[in-house]
Design a protein around this nucleic acid. Structure first.
Length: 144
DNA sequence: TAGGCCATCTGGTCCT
DNA sequence: AGGACCAGATGGCCTA
């Protein structure tokens, strides 16, 4: 539990209009609101657990900072598209090129994400190989 | 200090 | 009626 709005106790404002009505109705509304809040917390908890599981299977460049929810979804999308492309290419290369397929497959295993990276000697930074191109799309602009 | 990210509360809507 | 889901509002924490 990180923070709570000071004006919002678990009682909720829904019950405020019932203040003038019977105490029983007020109590019922309060209880319902508290239950709804608890369910919502539980639901969000499940959602966050799902995000954590997704973060574990999606490539993360560097261990320093965990991906935000938005970044996680973007990364998952790119990752799926990359995998899909590998399968498509594999079909084009036919069965005899089994070694090539195995190499591609190895590259998308979590322990081998590094093989997707290239080093830019000019900037001193790593960047993503063209076979897997995750890019931010300036989401902050449309989120405003 | 501003901006990004997040948790929480809340009321509305839809479904069972 | 009550639960699930959603989006808006709000405030706390963290970082550049």
């Amino acid at each position: 539990m990180k923070s709570r709005r000071p004006s919002c106790s678990d009682s909720g404002s829904e019950s405020s209009e019932l203040d003038s009505k019977s105490p029983e109705k007020y109590e019922t509304a309060t209880r319902r609101r508290m239950a709804a809040n608890a369910r919502e917390r539980k639901r969000m908890e499940g959602l966050n657990t799902a995000f954590d599981r997704l973060r574990k299977v999606v490539p993360q460049w560097g261990e320093d900072k965990k991906l935000s929810k938005y970044e996680t979804l973007q990364m998952a999308l790119s990752y799926i598209m990359a995998l899909n492309r590998i399968l498509t290419d594999a079909r084009r290369h036919h069965a005899p090129h089994r070694q090539w397929l195995d190499l591609q497959f190895d590259c998308v295993q979590p322990e081998n994400y590094a093989c997707l990276m290239r080093y830019d000697s000019q900037t001193g930074q790593e960047y993503i190989n063209s076979s897997f191109s995750y890019q931010f799309d300036g989401h902050q602009s449309w989120r405003q």
